[in-house]
Simulated scan of single mutants.
Amino acid sequence: MRIGALSTRTGVPVPTIKYYLREGLLHPGELTSPNQAQYGDGHVRRLKLVRALLDVGKLSIAATRTVLDSVDAPDSSLHEVLGIAQQALTPPVPADDGSADLREAQQLADRLIADRGWQVEPGSPARESLARIVLTYHDLGQADLLVLLDDYAAAAERLAVAEVAAVGRRPDPDSLVEGAVLGTVLGDALITALRRLAQENASARAFAAADS
């Protein structure tokens, strides 16, 4: 199919497809003339993947390119690909200011990781992100809510084990890697949506009747 048909089939405007091609997010089509190329089902699938990472996962163009490069790399292990996807999703944290409060938050994060026996690299962006979140709770006078930290960790661990097992059952290596990436990126959005729904339900049950 030509680029116009690819646009019609995917709902992605032609200028956007050309932009993805220039940015290396979409593989070039097969040239049939100096100004014409043919695209196939692989391009349709790739476009859907790109849109999912950008629109649902809210990744930047640069982060999306990094994630897709890891998907395309033939020698990347599933663990490596997951790490790249997680780094793309984890927002950058400010430079370490060496404050005692930050050190205390980092130590709390390290204790949680050690207590649960998690295999986490010392430089994991998620570890530093957790420490910064703990620090923010303290700064805002909400440290009492950190009593929920173990509940969050237990729920996250159960979910992570189930996610990895579900992806690991896929027999096709390409599908396995793609599932790992999408499961990480879209899973964050899915968890957020489900948590909002559960919070609305819990709030209605706990407070709505008392307010009426």
Rank of each mutant, 00 (worst) to 15 (best):
L186V: 15
A160D: 06
S33A: 14
L148S: 12
D55A: 13
A210W: 12
T8I: 02
Q142D: 15
Y19M: 13
A131G: 04
V185A: 06
E163Q: 11
D151G: 13
A156G: 05
Q106W: 10
Y137C: 11
G24P: 05
G57R: 00
S129T: 07
H138N: 08
V44L: 13
V120D: 01
V161G: 08
V56H: 10
G40M: 03
S77I: 02
Y19L: 14
I113F: 08
V56D: 12
A209Y: 07
L145R: 12
E30R: 14
L145C: 06
R116A: 05
A165P: 02
R2C: 01
D144C: 09
P74W: 05
L135K: 04
L102T: 02
D188Y: 06
A100D: 13
T66S: 10
R132K: 01
P15Q: 04
L47E: 04
A206T: 15
A206W: 06
R9Y: 00
Q38Y: 05
F207A: 11
I113Y: 00
Q142G: 09
A143L: 08
S129D: 10
N35P: 03
A105I: 10
D69N: 15
A126L: 07
S212Y: 03
N201A: 15
A206N: 10
I3W: 01
E80I: 10
A204N: 13
R132N: 03
E30L: 12
E121H: 12
L197H: 07
E23H: 12
W118D: 02
A209T: 13
A52H: 03
L130A: 09
D139C: 04
K18R: 15
H79R: 14
Q87S: 08
R158H: 11
G123M: 09
G187Q: 03
L68Q: 00
D139I: 06
P74I: 06
I113M: 02
D75F: 06
Y152K: 02
L135A: 11
R116E: 10
V185Q: 01
L25H: 00
R170W: 08
Y152Q: 01
G40P: 09
D144Q: 14
S175G: 11
A37Y: 11
D96V: 08
A5V: 11
P173K: 06
A37H: 08
G98Y: 14
T8Q: 11
P15G: 01
D75Y: 03
R195V: 09
K58L: 05
A160P: 02
L49D: 04
L53Q: 07
G24I: 00
R103C: 07
P125K: 07
E200N: 15
L108I: 09
R65P: 04
A153E: 01
R170E: 10
D174L: 08
G24W: 00
Q199N: 15
L89Y: 10
E104L: 13
R65I: 05
L49P: 03
